[in-house]
Design a protein around this nucleic acid. Sequence first.
RNA 1: GGUCCCAUCGUCUAGCCCGGUCCAGGACGUCUCCCUCUCACGGAGAAAACUGGGGUUCGAAUCCCCAUGGGACUACCA
Length: 528
Amino acid sequence: MIHQTMNQSTEARVPRVRFAPSPTGYLHIGGLRTALYNELFARHHGGIFVLRIEDTDRTRYVEGAVENILRTLKWAGLTPDEGPFLAPDGSVQERGAYGPYVQSARTEKYRHYAEELLGKTEEASGQSYAYRCFCTPEEIESLKKDRASSDAAPLPGLVPHARNCRGLTGEESAALAAESPYVIRLRVPDRVGRVEFTDSIRGLVRFDYSSVDDQVLLKSDGFPTYHLANVVDDHEMEITQVIRGEEWLPSTPKHLLLYRALGWEPPAFAHLPLLLNPDRTKLSKRQGDVAVEDYRAQGYLPQAMINFVALLGWNPSGDREKYSKDELAREFRLEKVNKAGAVFNREKLDWLNGEYMKEMPDEELTEVVIPFLRIDGVLTEVDGGIKAADGSPVDREALRRSVALEKGRAKTLKDFAATTGYFFTSKVELSRDMIPWKKSTPEVAKERLYGLRDRLAGLSEKYFSDPKLLEAEIIPFVAERGWTNADTLWPFRVALSGRERSPSPFEIAWAIGKKRTLERVEAAISLL
RNA sequence: GGUCCCAUCGUCUAGCCCGGUCCAGGACGUCUCCCUCUCACGGAGAAAACUGGGGUUCGAAUCCCCAUGGGACUACCA
């Protein structure tokens, strides 16, 4: 009496996987990882990565969500081989031979199969694989309450309401259908038995028939539920390996039962461990950002996101932290995916993001930083030219240098807005008492700045082309005067930055140039 | 409650399938020291884990059982 579902070998076929998000808003970080694993699997095996939109719940549809998902996937560098994509003009189009790839455009198919099941008889029981249920949601709700409150062990097998409509004859059912709304439910066998399957990650998993509810397949509005649509589409799109979140594990027996009822060979299943909040519950909004676009807006690089999320639940070796997407694809093995959930920990993401920023060429980094500087008002764009917040022009080279200097201490692209502003203003804000080194006095600071000013003024522009040149010039000068680095360089640096913490004065001078360097030193002197 | 899944440092993990090389390795974070005008960077180092109990075995993080703990699911949502 055991129904065994074999995971047929699929070596003869091209592996096909899919990512199937619902357009209910934004792309969830967990969705990003699921999509990534699907793509990695496809690339590793030379297969096809399909994107499918599961929008069978009209009540949850959010305007623009499809575009948003597409945009975010693109940003992350994920590129489905088939399915909807964003055309250059911004419209959503499709590619691939298995379309449409949006479920709302496929409703006829689902209805067709649901009705087919109504009339199809299972040999073992002599009953149809599906039946019409006329119960209202309210009735079912109260039946459920009864079940929950009763001390008696739940009846083996069936959901309570099943007893109402399950026994209807074909004629009764058809007659009622003419006058009342109904749903079509899957008839789970009421004999003893179970569904078994070998999960690609977890191994053998089994469910007794008695623990599976008679799932609704077709809703009273004529739309399919996830379960039906998913099975129909995975079959029609010839998906060979399903890779999805662990939350789907409990409904897998329903899907397997459906494949059997329809007479189809099921794909292999792999259920990914969940991404967790710090308290180890399923990652959720409320405990942090879950939308990929939030991370994008906060200045995380797509490479860092991909790298980070890939290693949440899977690891190729254990002693390396940085991998490109190609390297990930080369190493990817579904069998090596962990079974336990993984806490999404932002510190490590910050670190990884910093690593990627540091290795990025300055020109490239500058390009991606600019939008963040504009958002935060550090820079504005006038007639295509970039200007500082106070209207002074900003040249590209100065911008590049400031980004190069600050990238060592930035965790995200957004951080540059907070650390980089003083490079571009014509006047630095500073107060008299922060100029002297903490163990020194304003008088000393003033003397040092005078000396520095005269010395700097005598240096040609060439010295400002490399912080090392400036340093090689100033350090000996400080020594020969009998000054200390501390009581000289601190005032110098503060004069240039207006900050307690910043890059070295030589670096700042290099970034802002001789003219501004002298202006700022002069301004500091006048405060003393 | 029921069903199912899971369990190595605070966190991500390597090792587990094919028991000994593991008084458990790496990374983030933390702490200390070095570098240093500051903050970072960088360098050196430290603290930090096999949930518990049985069993199998000469030997268990690794295999088995139980307990405990955690999680997911339990919709005409996905």
